[in-house]
């Protein structure tokens, strides 16, 4: 198609992409963290980034909503576009960008405020609602979508930090949903959770798939296999292989992918 010299095995492109990354390099000071990555992220799909620790999958994820801007020494080259618009163009403001591309982090990080205020925070700062009842609606629907409503509806005024780890993470997902994003980035969302909480979050990802594009970085191959439509395998800053999840896990094309999948390293 458009770029012939792609090192990545498999098809990196999709029919109608939501986000496109072309020849992306990321540097931390002198360190070359991401090396010439090209990939499309499709509409309403779940794509999983897998790979050994330090392979750059989280770094790449953070370039998708410019969270790496908060790190002084980080530098990004190449183009990343959301709906065809370059998000690193000088004229782009990160504020609306991040409202459209939300993020859930590795460790649950609720604000030390009430459950209600945690969810309402995003809509409030972005001026999404005009009245208290609208805000209440958003809070309720976000919590409902996160499957948390029934658990917390009677204690919305209690601190979010008082919930269990799994509940906190679903609260963070609800908080991301509340600003109605188009893409949700999840950076190892289950790594700090126990198996039961993990199952709940995975179930939630299944549910959300119908409305949002979800990019999930995960350490667990099983998780990638369970939740994602497509899978991308990163290795030492290179994007080695991209493909349908089933194909990646049953019949990987690249030797490195195969070694990783079969547990030769990781």
């Amino acid at each position: 198609m458009e770029n012939s010299n792609i090192k990545t095995t498999g098809n990196v492109f999709v029919e109608n992409p939501r986000m496109t990354a072309r020849n992306v390099d990321v540097y931390y000071g002198d360190k070359h963290a991401i090396n010439d990555v090209t990939i499309d992220i499709g509409e309403q799909e779940v794509i999983a980034f897998i790979g050994p620790s330090g392979c750059g999958k989280s770094t790449f994820l953070r370039t998708l909503n410019r969270m790496n801007d908060t790190i002084d020494i980080c530098r990004v080259e190449g183009t990343i576009a959301l709906d065809g618009q370059d998000i690193y163009a000088p004229s782009v403001d990160v504020v609306p960008l991040r409202a459209r591309v939300g993020m859930v982090f590795q460790k649950p990080n609720p604000f030390p405020k009430s459950i209600y205020d945690n969810i309402a925070y995003g809509p409030r700062i972005h001026g999404l609602t005009k009245s208290k009842s609208e805000l209440d609606d958003i809070v309720e629907s976000a919590l409902e979508k996160a499957g948390l409503w029934n658990e917390v509806k009677d204690r919305l005024d209690q601190p979010g930090t008082g919930l269990s780890g799994g509940q906190q993470q679903r609260l963070c997902i609800a908080r991301a949903i509340a600003v109605s994003p188009e893409v949700i980035l999840m950076d190892e969302p289950c790594s700090a959770l126990d198996p039961i909480a993990t199952a709940k979050v995975e179930e939630l990802i299944e549910e959300l798939k119908s409305q949002y594009t979800i990019v999930i970085v995960t350490h667990s191959m099983q998780q990638a296999a369970r939740v994602s439509d497509r899978t991308a395998y990163f290795h030492l800053g290179d994007l080695i292989e991209v493909g349908n999840t089933e194909q990646i896990f049953t019949n990987p094309s690249h030797q490195l992918t195969q070694d990783y999948i079969t547990g030769r390293f990781g």
Binding site: T70, R98, F105, Y121
Partner: peptide, 15 residues
């Protein structure tokens, strides 16, 4: 104040 709280806010698009 943990960086994760700042990340959470920036991730939602706070200035």
């Amino acid at each position: 104040v943990p960086q994760s709280l700042r990340d959470a806010a920036y991730g939602l698009g706070s200035t």
